[in-house]
Amino acid sequence: MSGTDNQLSRELLVFLTTLYEQRHLGRTATRLSISLPKASRLLAEARIVFEDPLYTRFGHGLAPTARAHEVTAQARRVLEEMAKLFAAETFDPAAMNRVIRISALDNAIPIMIEPVLELFMKKAPKAGIAILPHDEHTLLKLRAGEADLAIFPAVNLPADFVSVPLLRTPYVYAVRAGHPLEGKVQNGTLSMQDLEACRRIQICVHPDTDDPIEGVPGPAEIPLKAGRTMLWTEYWLGAVRLMHRTDAVLILPWRTAKALSEERPLTVLARAESVPWLEPSLIWHAHTTLDTGLEWVRSLFISALRGSLRPLEPDEVRLGRLGDDSALHWS
């Protein structure tokens, strides 16, 4: 550094880490609630301090130089240490009035967000939760600070993200209570021939990139002509409601079937043995790891859904009608 390194303030470090996330001077100014001229002055100051341009224009944004990558990594470490130095010894969620932004598919609501909500509102009565769509932009939003947490399977997650698995549940074949297939179950089992004779509801999951298999939740294309599938939807909760109005078979996670049967009985016919288990995780960007408010929220999810960080216990499936204790059960 040059002799101007006495200008290396916390404000400049925060500016540099935010600019690295946003790659745009205007968005950085907005994020930090400062004017665009001040953001320009801070960048000019940083260029002098580090004797490097740090960013060059690229399209409608800015591209970091090699030196900018190094400086940002160092700045994050310094800010993390400063946070530890000045952080209060205790965190009081009752004083928190921020909105926690969580990106998730709608099936996360009954099985992962609802179990946390009551305690969250009780402990942090001034705070709120915003449920954002989970799509191909989720990781970008987490990096940019436009989302705080996300819930989805942590497959091929980039190195700058952190994840904690929340549950492990298998997929099952489900139908409405009173479906004709209930009468075809023999000795607790149903033949695949009987099962495949019924039409299906297809849940189209995006941004999932698995190979599409008809009937299995995934990135299925909607055809011009219907075949075994009779309904297509991107909404898990909507698919269950539609299932109750038809004789269609729906493949969905056991945990989802169990939770939604509390509202309206449904029947689990069999395990979908060929479908990989659902293993969603709580995901966040590494730059928010030391955020005490988010750390507290993450602890709520872990406590409510896992109890601890011990190895996950896989769900056990109960076949038969759920939500009606007087009805038939096969296991």
Rank of each mutant, 00 (worst) to 15 (best):
K122W: 12
M121V: 08
G178T: 13
C198L: 03
M112E: 15
I131M: 13
L190C: 00
V116S: 12
S163R: 04
A159T: 14
P207I: 03
L167Q: 07
L105M: 08
I201R: 03
T169M: 01
A197D: 14
G188I: 04
A130Y: 08
P180D: 02
T209N: 15
I129F: 02
T90F: 09
C204H: 05
R168I: 04
D106W: 06
D106T: 06
A154M: 14
L190V: 03
P153G: 11
L140W: 00
P207A: 06
Y173P: 07
L139D: 13
P207V: 03
A174V: 15
R200H: 05
H134M: 03
L190A: 02
D148Y: 09
H137N: 10
M121N: 15
N97E: 11
R98N: 03
A174L: 09
K141N: 11
P165T: 03
I129V: 11
A150S: 13
V172S: 09
I203N: 01
D92E: 01
M121L: 12
P133N: 10
I111K: 08
R101T: 00
A144S: 11
F161W: 00
I113T: 14
I131E: 07
L119N: 13
R176Y: 10
G183M: 01
F91V: 01
T209M: 15
N97V: 01
P212R: 14
T169C: 04
L157S: 10
P170K: 12
N156P: 00
K184T: 01
T209L: 14
F120Y: 10
R168E: 12
R143N: 11
I203W: 07
V172A: 05
R168V: 07
N187A: 11
K184N: 00
R143S: 08
K122F: 11
P93S: 01
D210F: 05
P170G: 05
A144L: 03
H206F: 11
I151G: 10
A130G: 13
I102E: 00
A104Q: 12
P125I: 08
T90P: 05
H134V: 04
H179K: 04
I113P: 12
T90L: 09
F91E: 00
Y173M: 03
V162W: 08
Q193P: 00
C198Y: 14
K122G: 15
V175G: 10
M112D: 12
R199D: 11
E196P: 01
P93Y: 04
D208Y: 12
A94W: 03
Y173T: 13
G188T: 10
G145P: 15
T189A: 05
D210Y: 10
G128V: 10
M96I: 02
S103W: 00
V205P: 13
P170F: 07
R143Y: 07
A147P: 13
V116T: 05
N156F: 06
Q186N: 00
I109V: 09
A197E: 11
L119T: 15
A130E: 13
I100L: 02
L166F: 09
R200K: 14
P115Y: 01
R176K: 12
N156S: 13
I113S: 14
K141F: 06
